[in-house]
Each structure stands twice: as structure tokens, then as C-alpha cells.
Design a binder for these strands. Sequence first.
DNA 1: GACCTGCTGCGGCGTG
Length: 729
Amino acid sequence: MTSAFDRLARPIQKWVRDQGWRELRDIQSRAAQIILGSEADIILAASTAGGKTEAAFLPLLSQLVDDADPRPGFDILYIAPLKALITDQARRLDDICGSAGIAVTPWHGDISSGVKARAIKNPKGVVLITPESLEALFIRRGLDIPRLFAATRAVVIDELHTVLDSERGIQMRSLLTRLELAVKRPIRRIGLSATLGDMVLARHYLRPDLADGVELVEARGGDAELRLQLRGYVQGTQDEGARAVTDAIADHLFGNLRGSDNLVFAGSRQAVEIYADRLRLRCEAAHLPQEFYPHHASLSREHRDFVERRLKDANLPTTAVCTSTLELGIDIGDVTSVAQIGAPFSVASCRQRLGRSGRREGRPAILRQYAVEAKVTAKSNFSDRLRLGLLRSIAAIELLLEGWCEPPQSDALHLSTLVHQILSIIAERGGVRADHLHKILCRDGPFRQVDTSVFVEVLRAIGSPDTRLIEQAGDGLLLLGPDGERLVEHYSFYAVFQTPEEYRLVAAGRELGTLPIDNLIAPGMLLIFSGRRWQVVEVHDHDRVIIVKPAAAGVPPIFGGDPGHIHDCVIERMLSVLESDHRPIYLDDAAWDLLAEARCNYADLQFGTTRIAWLSDNAAILATHAGTLKTITLALALRATGFTVQTHDGFLEVFGREASPPLNEVLANLAAGEEVDLFAHAPSLLFEKFHPYLTEPLLKLDALSARLQPEALPELCRQLICVADVRSA
DNA sequence: GACCTGCTGCGGCGTG
């Protein structure tokens, strides 16, 4: 067979040689053979900096050079979830395309309207766009879509793994369906991804109707040496004790990270502020130049750019104390080590973070995991005694080492995003019939879990006199109603995800960043923000602005957040770690003491032989051996039957009240399939952007599909009472 | 019990 390199177009070959590459990487050769030898859809899976972009684009651009399409229109559509990524990739592609005379157009909110207007007039080459800007194109220029994409041969979707089951991922898949409808032919899809946990599901996501036809090219081996340490810390119940742990961790970070580039994932924006402050003080005390900086989404763009530039600069040692802002693929170069404070929420993000270090040949990947546990007293709760945070850290590391990570959740209805896409299609076309809408979105598009009756209910809800998002014309055509019109006209419509309201924080005329409005802020209060200390001078509620001045002391603000979902496999692993007597080699002595203590307490509760630990006649701790979704579902079922329930990772603490029936009986009934009203205590059902326009029955369906697992309840309860029976018999 | 992401069209003003 002709080598992959030989099959590339001349100018592309020249570019490869100019890079000084001796040969194409394995993933690049294999991708080139498939792209140039077939029409197949492809997933290219490799770690950051694994050469995925070139693997897709070298052959695609070769096709443009050797076999140009005379029709007008963009030849290649590239979609990425971050503006920064588009800017980076446009620069790299410009370099390759320059000599081949192929146009490269970055397209997102920060690109000037002049560039966009020119591209619309004369569309060609590669366009790099965000899902939101593509959405805007459909809504504002619906009639131009067939012309703009008449010549498009391929859609390249970057960071596919981050959008698989998210609202934005569903939106993007809907847009791809609509694009193919507009040009009346399929367009090859190429997904670029980090290594995925479940490749079958990923293929299905890329091309639902022909998942088996999706070719998979994964980067082979090449895994760097991994150096791991899990350090245990115990914090007291007093404020003073809590500070002592923070200082101990800050001391360790300061001693080990100074002088090199590192990322410290602190877990929350508040923790980022605390640790950045502690580390700054240590530099000042030692009369050393500052090299520790905070980085999270509430900080001003200016400050974040500054930190990112420092990370890229090889001459300035820089450690960013950050949230998941620095987890995604923007180019900050290689870092020496990664630290993680507190247990990670998912194995997938843990892997993504670790992938930031050890990327260069011969350098190890280094992960320091800090586990902070509460000091146990006579009054301590069992969850503190079982050291659930430490266990989750261990479980995540073990699963990471085994190559596992969370698969996407595929059965959610995504009704909020469905409302968004209904409005968008009506706006794109001016009007559309209900049956046609159903065909585009539910039969051909990504909303296949939505059956006809639910779809009709959604249309009724958003067409009701209360909501007035849509209305029906005499000929049956669905049109935008007055409120729908107003919604779609505003630029805030294009994003499918929700964003909270915020104050802007300003010091000496410069914006430091933003704070959620639920912080109670008054003049005179002290704040830690952007790695420095401030005093509030003025609060302008109307303009949502807070003016601050430097201060000598401060407290970190509250940033809110939502509870995360822990996967079933992570919980199972936590329990098997508890039931084993093995000492993982990466634990330090303090962490090992904590684990040994947790194992003793687990045995004391008899959990080795039963899943129910009775606290009294009608109060117990249940070991659900299940992740957040199932555990929460059981908690709601028990609350509905009159119990007070507290939830923990994989455990429930259940207390009977005077009127509640015996817990044993309730569990037996649930095991037998008895139905209970999981929404008996009217929990809030508004989570997503377009939820406020839906009816309560629809909101419950949406919650049941994505946030609960009622179908798992009987089996979960059978397990609970079965294992309990074995013990009593 | 947490984090992140995105945005058009148009009017008004200054400058060359």
C-alpha cells in the first residue's frame, strides 16, 4: 500500500517536512489512510498534544488541494467548545494552509463582524466555529445555510468527549442533523477526543444511524511513567484546626512546586482563592518573586490571560491554582506536576488533569493527591469515620490506573434543549409543521428518547396562553409566539446552558472578576479575590457592581455550585477498597492510618456481612453500593414513605419518625416493585435554561430520565434486604 | 457536595 505520507498533497507534504518531522505519527498515518481511502466517519482518540488535529487535517486539506470543489461554500466545518481553542487551532491551520492557498476563518463572538460578513459573501476553505455561533447562523441566516455548506466535505468536532452527553453536545448533534437536511446529503463526521471510556457509545453519538460504520483510531501506548502520591491530612473541628491543614498543604506545595510549572486543582473557586492567598504569603515571607496565581472562571479575562501566558513562558516558573478552567485542551504547554486537593468528582476529569503533565518524552507524569479528612470525635458521623473522601480519591486513582472512565449517560430526555431547538428551527424556517419538527428532532435528530406523546405535550406547554413561546397558524404551521419571538431575538438565546447572575468586582477602575449575586455583600466587608485581599467600598445593586480597595485581611467569597454525580463503579470500588486489606503503595503514612481506621470502623458496623447497620429499632445506615442517581432515588422513595434521610456517597442514614412504618417492610415492598411518588415532597425541578416553560409532568419526566433511576429501585432494595437476611440467618 | 462553556445587530461616535 502507498504510504500515508505519499498520499498527502504536495504542499501538505512540504509542510510536514518543514516541521522537521521524520515521519507521521501512527495515528496520523492510520487516519490519513481512512480519510483518503473511504467516506467513513471517524473518531480519533489520543491525549492532548497527541497530534489529533494534524491527523484529521493533513488528509482533509490534501483532498482540497488535489480535488478542489468548484462549488462555493466552506469546504471543512470545524466545531469546538471554546473560543480559545478556535483561536489556537486557526493559528496552527493558517500555518499549514498558507502555502496551499486555503482560507481559514475563525468564527466566534470575539471575531469582528467584518470578517464574518466577508466569509458569508465568499465562503471557502476551513471555518472554525462554536456551537453557539453555528446556532446563530441557523437562526439569523437560515436561508443562506444551503449555500454556505454546499461544498462541505467534513465536519470536525473537537473535544468530542466533553460534549457527549451534555446539553451543548445534544445541541451540536441537532445542528448537524439540521445541516445535513439543509444540504440534502450526509456530511462525513470526524470526532477528535481524549481516550474514551466507552467507544461503542461514542460511535453512536457521532452517527446514531450508522454507529457500526464509524472507524475508530486510537493512539497506541506511549504512556509516560506515572508518579503518584496520596497524602492524608486531618483537620480539627475548630477554625484553628482547619487553618492548620490548609497551611500544612500550602507548605508542602510551596516546598515541592516552587521553581517549576504546575497545576494545582483545588476543587472549588473558594478553595482556589484560599490556597492562592496562602502561597502568595509564603513567597512574600521568603522575599521570593511571586509565582503562584489563582485561575478560575470568575476572574477577569485579563488576569486569566496573564496566568496562561506565564504558564506558556518557559523562563517564568508558574503554578496555577485552578478549577477545571485549565482542564480542557487550551495550549499551556507541558507542566511538571499536577496536584489535586480533595477527592475528584469523576475519573474522567482526573485523567484529563493528569494528562497535563508528563507529555514530553522521558518526563514522568506526576500526581499529588491531598486528602483532607475530619478529626473524629465521640460525636462524629459514620461518614467521617469511613473516610469517604479519602476512599473516593483512592477509587478514582485505581480506576484511572485500570484505564476506566465514566461512559456518557445516554437515556436523558433533554427537554430543555428540545424546547431550544424547536424555537430555533421555527426561527430558521419562519414556520414549520409539527410532524416535520418531530421528524427532524426526534426521528432523525438527537431526541430519540422523546416519544410522540411527550413531544406533543412539549408543544402544548410552550404554546399555552401562559408561555406563548409558539402559536399555530390556521394552516397548521407552527410560528413563534410573542414571547418566543422576544426570546429568540436576543443574543442570549444561542447558548443552551444556564448562567447565574453576577456582580462585577472593580478596584481602581479595573475589573477583577465576578461574584454570584447570592453573596451578601456590604461596604466594609473584607474579601479574598483574585489572589489578593480587599475591602468593599461601595455596592451598586442596580448596576451589579462592587467597588473594592486593597486591604490587609480578607475572607474568601461563596461561589455556589451544584451537587455532582458519582458513578456506580466509583462507589463499588470505594467499598471494595474498604473490604480489602491491601495497602496501596502510593499512600503516605497518614493516609494509610486513615484508611486502616476506616476499615476498622466499616467492620465495626458489620458492613462486611450486611448492607443494613441498625442504629435503633427504626433507624439505620444503608450501604447502597450504588452511585448518586440510584442512591438519591432510594432516598426520595424513603422520604415519601415518611422517613428522614441523609445522603452520603453510597450510603443513606435513615431515621423513622413516629408515623413511619417499619423500614424492613418498606424496603421489602420497594423490592417487590411497589410504586411510590418520588416527588411527594415537591423537590425543585428547575435545573436547565428552558425548564421554566415546561409543565410539572414534563419536568418530572425529564428529572426521571436524567437525575433519578426509578427502574433500579426494586433490585437495589432486594440487594439491601437479601444481604441483610444472610446475616440474620 | 463543583466546575466549565457561549453570544447578534445596530446605532453612535471618532478618525483618516
